[in-house]
C-alpha cells in the first residue's frame, strides 16, 4: 500500500518534469494528464475518493480538454496534415504509456486483492457534501459568482472585435 503511493509519486514527478520541459504543447498536455491521474491515485490512497474523482473529471476531463481545444484552434491556420500527423506519431505515445503502466498495475492490484486499505478514516462524498452545503455555503455562492464572472470575461475576451480595433490604432 505504501509502495502504491511511492509509485504514484514518482510517476507524478516524472510526468510533471516532462510537462514543464516539453517543447510541443499537445505532448505536454498528455504528460499533464498522466500527472493528474497519478495525483488522483494519491488522493484515493489518502482516503479522499471524491477528490480523486473530481481530479479526473474536472482537471483531466475538462480543463486539459479546454487547453487542447485552444492548442488545436491556434494552429488551424498554418497547420497542415503533415504537422497534425507529426503530433500524433506513434513514437510519441511510448513514454506516456510507460508512465501510466505503473498506475494501471496499481489499479489491477487494488481491484484484485482485498488487502488494499486506504486511510483508516475515509472521508466520503456524503460528508463532503454535507459540510459543503452547511458551513461553507457562502463560499459555494462566491465560487459560483467567480465562475459566472469567468464565463462573462472569457466570452468578452474571445470576441473578434478586439483584434479589429487594433488595426485602427
Amino acid at each position: 500500500m505504501e509502495s502504491l503511493f511511492y509509485i504514484a509519486a514518482v510517476t507524478a514527478l516524472a510526468s510533471t518534469v516532462l510537462v514543464v520541459t516539453g517543447k510541443n504543447a499537445s505532448h505536454a498536455l498528455i504528460y499533464l494528464i498522466v500527472s493528474l491521474l497519478s495525483v488522483a491515485v494519491i488522493f484515493f490512497l489518502l482516503g479522499a475518493p471524491f477528490a480523486a474523482a473530481l481530479e479526473i473529471v474536472v482537471y483531466a476531463g475538462a480543463i486539459v480538454v479546454l487547453f487542447l481545444f485552444v492548442v488545436m484552434m491556434l494552429n488551424l491556420g498554418k497547420g497542415s496534415v503533415a504537422r497534425e500527423s507529426a503530433w500524433l506519431r506513434p513514437r510519441m505515445w511510448i513514454l506516456p504509456c510507460l508512465l501510466t503502466i505503473p498506475l494501471f498495475l496499481g489499479l489491477v492490484y487494488a481491484l484484485s486483492g482485498e488487502s488494499v486499505q486506504t486511510a483508516a478514516s475515509m472521508v466520503g462524498p456524503k460528508t463532503v457534501g454535507t459540510r459543503l452545503f452547511g458551513p461553507y455555503l457562502l463560499a459555494v455562492e462566491l465560487a459560483g459568482i467567480l465562475l459566472l464572472a469567468a464565463l462573462v470575461g472569457s466570452y468578452h475576451l474571445g470576441r473578434r472585435y478586439l483584434s479589429e480595433r487594433r488595426e485602427e490604432v
Binding site: A51, A143, H156
Partner: peptide
C-alpha cells in the same frame, strides 16, 4: 485529521483553476 475541509478547499481550488483557465485562454486567443 479525517475532516472533509481539505477536500472542500480542493474543490474551491478546482473552481478557481477552471475560472482562471477560461479567462487565461481567452487572453491567449487575443
Amino acid at each position: 485529521w479525517a475532516q472533509a475541509d481539505g477536500q472542500i478547499m480542493f474543490m474551491f481550488i478546482l473552481a478557481l483553476a477552471a475560472a482562471e483557465v477560461a479567462v487565461a485562454l481567452g487572453i491567449v486567443l487575443q
